[in-house]
Amino acid sequence: MTAALEIERLNFAYSSSGLISSGAVALKALDNVSLSVEPGRVLGIVGESGSGKSTLLRTIVGLNRGYSGTIRYRGQTVDHAAGNARMAPFRAGVQMIFQDPGGSLNPFRTIRQTLTAALARAPSAAPERDRLGVLLEQVGMNASALDRRPCEFSGGQLQRLAIARALACDPTVFLCDEPTSALDVSIQAQILDLFAKLKNDGRAFIFVTHNLGVLGQIADTIAVMFRGRVVEVGPARRLIAEPKEAYTAALIAASPRLKHRGVLLENARARLVPRASATGSVL
């Protein structure tokens, strides 16, 4: 099967200059990252702050220029510098969902205006009747939301609406950056259910989070990132049950869980948990 999205030897560095460091210093945020995800599959990416998870997603959609390596969308190499005519299928077909549930919704626009604008980018030109109603139904909401503005919704509802906005473009790939981290746990489970449904429809996901438990539920494959590199990648259950890398094991040891009471503090006291930071400074 052709991968929905494939990246090969992706490298990207942020250049920092001025305040913190004197002179320009390149900070390698992505170091030879190669990953791929097939339709109907979820690739989970886990790692700590500064490991390069978000940078990876931003680089894929073209928000970071000056990367090296190859990004292929449905077998075709993506050229972010190409014109909109060539890039339109990619831009509609790869949609991002952010941590801040209101972040992708214009606060001044009604939900109807936002969804209508997104629908205009969808590849299929044939407008179904009541497309807006269908979209809202797909995310577990109804048409009463259409004439309201983002400020009238709760965090979980906003995340549903953000997903509806992305769905309007009929995407092949969802890039999710901590999509449930700002939500309460009972709402998080609702959103995970929704993603599972979309996955069963054949959509591919790259799902970035720091929460291994969430990935254990939703991901088929998990990649562990540390200082810009993928240090381990494998089937989700195998990786959680039998991590091969010490860093993966440390992440698992530090995850609060509902069994083995007290083991979290014991692990922390025993310093089983190494310290990570992108800048390499010792915390």
């Binding site: 746990v185 609702q190 438990g213 254990g216 539920q217 959680i240 069994k259």
Partner: peptide, 17 residues
């Protein structure tokens, strides 16, 4: 508690409230 993903029991589905 049912809505929390359980690392020790991935077969238990999370159940949303």
């Amino acid at each position: 508690i049912a809505s929390i993903p359980d690392l020790d029991d991935l077969d238990r589905p999370v159940v949303a409230i």
